[in-house]
Design a protein around this nucleic acid. Sequence first.
DNA 1: ATTAAATATAGATATATATCTATATAGGGG
DNA 2: CCCCTATATAGATATATATCTATATTTAAT
Lengths: 107, 107
Amino acid sequence: MNQDYTANAKIIKALSDPSRLKIIDILSCGEMCACDILEHFDFTQPTLSHHMKVLMGCGIVECRKEGLWNYYSLNGTNCNKLILFLMSLITNTDDCICKEKTKGGCK
Amino acid sequence: MNQDYTANAKIIKALSDPSRLKIIDILSCGEMCACDILEHFDFTQPTLSHHMKVLMGCGIVECRKEGLWNYYSLNGTNCNKLILFLMSLITNTDDCICKEKTKGGCK
DNA sequence: ATTAAATATAGATATATATCTATATAGGGG
DNA sequence: CCCCTATATAGATATATATCTATATTTAAT
């Protein structure tokens, strides 16, 4: 399997959860500490910790530690790369995996 | 949980698999029947059937039946909607879920 | 040093899913 | 009607994951 598919699938998988989409939405306003993010949700602190780990594991979110607090923010570059990947994926480009259509019968 | 998050998470989850990303890439060239898509993969026909069901279930792929063959194609409108959702998600907009940053301490 | 607060980790559980083999269904051709 | 091909479904299995409770770690303040 092409490495691009695998690497981007990991990022996309990190975004495939409603709670994590909401976290991304929250962080789009700027950096925020975990305890303030948590107030937007009904789940427990360890669950948020898990979600943040997933989002950081794929490079879409970064963390700045300051005293007791973890300040999280979006990695804008990686967000943009994901958008560009998806746009190129759905766009018929010259280097597309298939060269010709199959209209009029298979094989 | 906001309905947008849930609905889009379902679409994003459908794209969170390397094989399904490859299928999207293949379909970006135009419609293709299942048997021809299958030739790009090592897994079995029922597995492809499963993947196509997932991709259709979220509205990102459509199917046109013709005789024995199923011709699959991307739903361009829904692809575009997904891109737009992601772009609005990572962009700090007026209707963002959080109104102010938390610089300088939490709570 | 003790305490309190923020976060992380461990372990458990329930659910989802990617894949397989085996079988069923459906449509076309002879 | 019978066979072949394309696709779907059923059922099994192994793995992943979202969540919880309980506990550990880290850092600051007193």
